[in-house]
Simulated assay, not measured.
Amino acid sequence: MGEKKKIFFFIYQLGSGGAARTMLNLLNNMDLDQFEPTLITLNYEGDYEKYLKEEITFIKLPTRRLRSGIIPFSKLIKKEKPAIVFSTIPNYNLIAIAARLLSGHKAKNIVREAALLGTEGKFNANLKLYGLAYRFSKKVVALSEGVRQNIIQNYKVHPKKVEVIYNPVDIENIETLMKQGEIAEEYQSIFHNPREKVIITAGRLVDDKDQATLIRAFATVRENIEANLIILGEGELEENLKNEVKAWNLEHAVYFAGFQENPYVYFHHADLFVLSSKREGFGHVLTEALATRVPIISTDARPGAAEVLDEGRYGVMTSVGDADALAAQMEDVLNWDNEKRTRVTEKGWERAASFRAEKIVKEYEMLFNQTIDQ
């Protein structure tokens, strides 16, 4: 056996977002005979820390401020001499690159980019900065083809540097959690009522996720079908969305269930999962919902949702922001017979399996090896 290759994984905290889930899935599925991964975060308590395998070294920098992390991070790089410093999310990528440069060590940076920054004509100063910084990185991982094109066009990064690797989905873990998990007591009666359908969505309560359009569509669905809507997630628009619910007199039918550590048991027992986003870099929640075998409707949130669902082969697609069209699709799917539902959800599960963590992690491992050998 040759010497193991040391890889640093950097993220601000192992919190509850998609980037943290990707890091967790990567770390927990790495080949530990070949690599020696170390997770580095700022000094936070993250929701997902308890799921990190014990064999993975975990170091917290002694600060919660990003900029203050550069010097301790660079000292760590100098001392431990990793072959690769891998990071995700633009601001954290800048910190990882700065720390590596400051360390004077010849580690190579690989940055992962999930967002579609610059697609609205703002962020231009930031984009120039990211583009410049990414020149000091050996590779940029884009989590969809659409994100790759955006990085090349808006960040002005050389196309040869940018590789698409989809998000890893830990299907086995999702299946275990969905079967063994418990729905919180206050929501159990909703799922046990055979006369009423359950529609579910999950995501941060922010403008990009556009739950407001879903609430409006749901108001229309309620005129014809007895149903409840459960909204998983937290965020700055919670009050606004609750006011929207009040405006439609839907307080008795819409439930804000907050952040749930195990959303999969909710997805699995729902009749329909809906994603109403305006934009998605990848749409990680769609792959997870597919893995729980629930029928899916998603807006044509570019580029990610369209890629995950392959333009509608694996889930029903509808236009962004169109509450009427969404309502019509929701009614249609809720009226499917069992045979059609099973056929569609089995196909969806096969799609989720194509993002299996083991397969995606192998792609990362190949990238790490190629970059080390460059």
Rank of each mutant, 00 (worst) to 15 (best):
N240K: 15
K242L: 00
K242G: 00
N243K: 14
N243W: 02
N243D: 12
E244A: 07
V245N: 05
V245M: 08
V245Y: 09
V245Q: 11
V245C: 10
K246P: 09
K246E: 14
A247C: 05
A247S: 05
A247Q: 10
W248A: 08
N249A: 13
N249C: 14
L250C: 10
L250T: 12
E251R: 07
E251Y: 08
E251A: 10
H252Y: 01
V254R: 05
V254Y: 05
A257F: 09
G258T: 03
G258I: 07
F259L: 11
F259W: 11
F259K: 11
F259V: 11
Q260D: 02
N262Y: 10
N262L: 13
Y264A: 00
V265H: 07
Y266I: 10
F267D: 05
H268D: 06
H268T: 06
H269C: 01
A270I: 00
D271Q: 05
L272Q: 07
L272I: 00
L272T: 03
F273H: 04
V274Y: 04
V274I: 00
V274P: 02
V274Q: 01
S276W: 01
S276P: 01
S277P: 08
K278N: 10
K278W: 05
K278A: 02
K278Q: 08
R279P: 00
R279N: 07
R279H: 00
E280R: 03
E280A: 07
E280D: 11
G281H: 01
F282R: 04
F282K: 04
G283A: 05
H284L: 09
H284Y: 04
H284F: 03
H284R: 11
L286S: 00
L286I: 05
T287W: 04
T287Y: 02
E288P: 11
E288M: 10
E288C: 12
L290G: 08
A291W: 10
A291S: 12
A291K: 09
T292P: 04
T292W: 03
T292G: 08
T292C: 15
R293W: 06
V294E: 07
V294I: 14
V294D: 06
V294Q: 11
I296F: 02
S298N: 06
S298W: 06
S298L: 04
T299R: 00
D300H: 00
A301H: 03
A301W: 09
P303E: 03
G304E: 08
G304M: 05
A305M: 14
A305E: 12
A305T: 14
A305R: 11
A306G: 07
V308I: 02
D310L: 02
E311H: 12
E311Q: 15
G312E: 12
Y314M: 10
V316Q: 14
V316C: 12
M317E: 13
S319G: 11
S319N: 09
D322I: 12
D324M: 01
A325V: 15
A325W: 14
A325T: 15
L326T: 15
L326A: 13
L326D: 14
A327E: 14
A328V: 10
A328G: 08
Q329R: 09
Q329T: 12
Q329F: 06
M330S: 10
M330W: 03
M330K: 06
V333W: 06
V333F: 04
L334D: 13
N335Q: 15
E339F: 08
E339K: 13
T342K: 03
T342W: 01
R343C: 11
V344P: 03
V344I: 15
T345F: 01
T345R: 02
E346H: 15
W349V: 13
